[in-house]
C-alpha cells in the first residue's frame, strides 16, 4: 500500500503540470497579496484574519481546480487503459481507491501549504509579522470545506463521466460571479469584505455568523459523504 501511495504521489507531483500549476498559483497569490491584501480588507490590517480570509477566498478557485486536476490522473483515457491491467490484480479495489484518494489529498494539501507558505513569507517580508495562530480559523472556514467537497464530489463525478471533472473546475469561478445569499457568500468572496463592516468595531476579531458556519459545515459534511459514497461504489 505504501509503495502504491508513493508511486501515485510521484505520478501526481513529479511532472510538468504540477510545477507549472504551482508557478501559476504562487504568481497569482503574490499578485493578490501585493495588489489587494497589502492595503487591508474592510479597514482591517493586512495580516488580520479578514484580509487573510479574503486572500484565501480569492485563491480557493485555483486550489479547487488543482485538486480536481489531481483526480484527472485517475480518470483520463490513458489511466482507464492502464486500469485494464490494474483491475486484473488481486488488490482490493476499495483499498486501491483509498490509496489513490490519499495521494490526491496529499497533492491538494501540498498546493494549499505552498499557498499558505507564500503568505507567511509575504507577512514576514513586509511586516515582520508571525502570529500564525490567528489565521487558522480562516483556513478552516474557507479552504477545508471547499477542498474536501471538491475531492469528494470530483471523485464521484470522475467515475460517472471523466469530462465532468473539467466542467466542475469552473464551479467556484462561476460562484464568484453570482450574487449569493449572505449565508453562502464565502463562495463568491464577498463575505470578508462585507461582514467586518457590519460588526461596527475597528479591526474586529474573527467571527462567523451561525448561518455561514452552518453552511460551511454542511458543505464539509456533504464532501465527506460524497467521498464515502465514492469509496462504497468501488467493487469489494
Amino acid at each position: 500500500m505504501n509503495k502504491i501511495f508513493r508511486y501515485e504521489c510521484q505520478r501526481l507531483l513529479w511532472n510538468k503540470f504540477f510545477f507549472g500549476f504551482l508557478g501559476v498559483l504562487l504568481l497569482y497569490g503574490w499578485q493578490v497579496l501585493e495588489g489587494v491584501t497589502l492595503s487591508g480588507i474592510s479597514h482591517t490590517a493586512p495580516f488580520s484574519p479578514w484580509s487573510f480570509g479574503d486572500y484565501l477566498s480569492r485563491m480557493m478557485p485555483l486550489l479547487w481546480t488543482g485538486a480536481l486536476f489531481f483526480l484527472t490522473f485517475f480518470t483520463s483515457s490513458a489511466a482507464r487503459r492502464a486500469a485494464v491491467l490494474t483491475d486484473a490484480a488481486p488488490f482490493s479495489p476499495r483499498g486501491y481507491a483509498l490509496t489513490r484518494c490519499a495521494a490526491a489529498l496529499t497533492g491538494t494539501c501540498l498546493i494549499t501549504f505552498a499557498c499558505l507558505a507564500e503568505t507567511a513569507v509575504f507577512y514576514r517580508w513586509y511586516f515582520g509579522w508571525q502570529d500564525w495562530g490567528t489565521l487558522i480559523l480562516p483556513v478552516l472556514t474557507v479552504l477545508v470545506p471547499a477542498l474536501v467537497f471538491s475531492l469528494g464530489s470530483g471523485w464521484l463525478l470522475g467515475r460517472i463521466r471523466p469530462w465532468l471533472l473539467y466542467a466542475w473546475m469552473l464551479f467556484p469561478f462561476l460562484c464568484r460571479t453570482l450574487p449569493l445569499p449572505q449565508t453562502a457568500c464565502i463562495w463568491n468572496g464577498s463575505f470578508f469584505a462585507r461582514y467586518p463592516l457590519t460588526l461596527d468595531v475597528l479591526d474586529p476579531p474573527f467571527s462567523l455568523p451561525f448561518s455561514t458556519a452552518a453552511v460551511q459545515t454542511v458543505v464539509l459534511g456533504i464532501g465527506v459523504m460524497l467521498w464515502g459514497i465514492g469509496m462504497c461504489w468501488e467493487r469489494k
Binding site: R11, W14, R80, V84
Partner: peptide
Amino acid sequence: QDFGLFDEL
C-alpha cells in the same frame, strides 16, 4: 490487446 501504462513512471 489494448492496454495503457503509467507514462510518468
